[in-house]
Design a protein around this nucleic acid. Structure first.
Length: 272
DNA sequence: CAGCGCCCCTGCCCGC
DNA sequence: TGCGGGCAGGGGCGCT
C-alpha cells in the first residue's frame, strides 16, 4: 500500500496524537510480521513518552527515552488512531494505548510489515544504515545520482526502486516518474546520459512532492489516520493503465514486467 | 560487489 | 457457485 508519500501522510496524521504523549499499555494480538514483534516491547515502552515521530524512507521512527520503535507498513500495513471502544477487526496485530486513552492500532493483512525495537542510534540499525538519500533532500541531486549510476547494468526502473540508491520510490511512483522524464523503464542505468539523469531526478522529486501534497495514492484501502483517502490516484498517468491510450499522445500504453513488478510505459513518449 | 529471482501472506478478480 | 491461477502499493535474503 504505502510508498513514501503514503508513509509521510500517515506520519503527519498520527503525529498530533502521539507527540509528547505516553504509552500506557500494549496489546499484541499477532506477533508474526516480517520478523516477530519483540515480545518484551512493553519493557521499553510502557510508561514512556513518545518524544519525536520521524520518517526515514518508508520507515516510521518513534523515539523514546530508551531507543526507537521502527515501523514499516510493508504492502498492506495500516496505522490508525482509534477510540478505546473501537472493535478489533481482522488483521489488527498490535495496539499502543496512550495516556489520552486513544489507541494507535496497527493492521496488516499480508503481514509484510515490520515493528522492531532498537536501543542503538537508529541510523546505525541494519535496516536503516544502507538507505540512500531522501528524494526531496539536497543529497538527492543529478550529480550524485549520475555518478552512482555509472557502470550499472540494471534497468533504470529497478535502479530507482532500490532503496540503496534513493529511498521511497515504489512501483507506482517509479512508473510515473519515468513517464514524466520520458525514459523507458527497461533502459539500462549506465546508458542514461547526464541530461536524462537530471530529468529523472527532477521527475522523481516532482512526483513525490505532488503525491505528498495530494495526501498519497489510494488504490484499494489506503487511508489517512482520520480515514480519508489520498487523491493522487487522479494524477496517475501510466500506473494501472496498461493497454489504455497515453494521456499525452493516445498511443496505447505498453505493460510489461520488470523485476516481477508491473511496468507500464508509453512507447512513443518514453524514448530516452 | 552487482544483479536477479524467491519468498513472506491474505484477499480479490478472472476464467473455466 | 466453486476452484485454481495470477496478481497486488515492499524488500530482505540467498544464490550466481
Amino acid at each position: 500500500m504505502p510508498e513514501l508519500p503514503e508513509v509521510e501522510t500517515v506520519k503527519r496524521g498520527i503525529t498530533p496524537y502521539l507527540q509528547g504523549n505516553t504509552i500506557q499499555n500494549i496489546h499484541i494480538y499477532q506477533t508474526k510480521l516480517r520478523w516477530p514483534i519483540p515480545s518484551n516491547l512493553e519493557n521499553y515502552l510502557i510508561g514512556q513518552p513518545i518524544q519525536t515521530i520521524s520518517r526515514r524512507g518508508k520507515y516510521l521512527l518513534l523515539q523514546f527515552p530508551a531507543g526507537h520503535l521502527l515501523i514499516h507498513l510493508g504492502m498492506s500495513g495500516v496505522l490508525r488512531i482509534v477510540d478505546p471502544d473501537t472493535k478489533l477487526t481482522k488483521h489488527d496485530h498490535i495496539d499502543f494505548q496512550l495516556n489520552t486513552n486513544l489507541i494507535l492500532r496497527y493492521n496488516d493483512v499480508r503481514r509484510f510489515g515490520t515493528i522492531l525495537w532498537t536501543d542503538k542510534p537508529v541510523q546505525e540499525h541494519q535496516l536503516i544504515k544502507h538507505l540512500g538519500p531522501e528524494p526531496l533532500s539536497q543529497y538527492f541531486n543529478e550529480n550524485a545520482f549520475y555518478a552512482l549510476s555509472r557502470n550499472r547494468n540494471t534497468p533504470i526502473k529497478t535502479f530507482i526502486m532500490n532503496s540503496r540508491n534513493v529511498v521511497g520510490v515504489g512501483n507506482i511512483y517509479a512508473n510515473e516518474a519515468l513517464f514524466l522524464a520520458g525514459i523507458r523503464p527497461d533502459k539500462l542505468t549506465g546508458t542514461l546520459t547526464k541530461a536524462e539523469m537530471t530529468k529523472l531526478v527532477e521527475a522523481i522529486k516532482t512526483v513525490i512532492k505532488q503525491a505528498i501534497e495530494a495526501g498519497g495514492t489510494t488504490l484499494k484501502d489506503f487511508r489517512h489516520a482520520d480515514g480519508k483517502p489520498g487523491y493522487f490516484r487522479n494524477n496517475l498517468k501510466v500506473y494501472g493503465r496498461g493497454g489504455q491510450p497515453c494521456l499525452n499522445c493516445h498511443t496505447l500504453l505498453v505493460e510489461t514486467k520488470l523485476g516481477q513488478r508491473q511496468t507500464v510505459f508509453c512507447p512513443n513518449c518514453q524514448t530516452g
